[in-house]
């Protein structure tokens, strides 16, 4: 995908939609395409948070390994979803494994570069923070609802 068509793709994506053209162009330049096979790990628990990712194809499982029970799946992320919101916080480490479950194509965005641009251009940083807040809020809401065990037997 050319940088121009990548910019167009980002401008239509729900996460990036509404950013200024110059920000979209910068992000398109920054984006690194990744192709991973089933069984690969995008990152592992304890790794430094170096990038955030946009899943274009495939499935990524967030897992945590528990002795005696193996890998417990926290959540699955598929096409269109963003993972790695913690990159907005410096010096963070990954708390889960990101395990490729269906062959995946992703875009990786360098965290340090994104943070630096956010510090230098607060409008860009604020817009990005709003978008990550929506991701965090959505995950928190979904987690709360899953904790309610809505599909369980009524008591």
């Amino acid at each position: 995908m050319s940088k121009t068509s990548l910019q167009q793709y980002l401008s239509e994506h729900p996460f990036f939609r509404g950013l200024r053209p110059k920000d979209l162009a910068w992000l398109a330049e920054l984006a690194e395409p990744l192709a991973l096979e089933v069984g690969d790990y995008l990152y592992r628990e304890g790794d430094q948070s170096k990038d955030f990712y946009l899943v274009q194809e495939g499935l990524v499982r967030l897992e945590i390994h528990t002795p005696g029970r193996g890998a417990l799946v926290i959540q699955t992320l598929g096409p269109g979803e963003v993972l790695g919101w913690s990159v907005m916080l410096p010096e963070t480490r990954k708390t889960f494994d990101a395990h490729i479950f269906q062959a995946a194509r992703l875009l990786a965005f360098d965290a340090a570069a994104v943070r630096q641009r956010s510090e230098e251009d607060h409008h860009f940083g604020y817009e990005l923070c709003k978008r990550f807040s929506r991701v965090i809020g959505g995950r928190l809401q979904a987690t709360r609802l899953r904790l309610l065990d809505l599909y369980g037997q009524p008591h």
Binding site: L59, R61, R69, L72, I74, G78, F101, A142, L145, R146
Partner: peptide, 16 residues
């Protein structure tokens, strides 16, 4: 909502 082992689909809420 919850899966261990051989499940080869998605884990998460339907609204997501």
């Amino acid at each position: 909502d919850r899966a261990e082992g051989a499940w080869n689909g998605s884990v998460g809420l339907v609204t997501e």
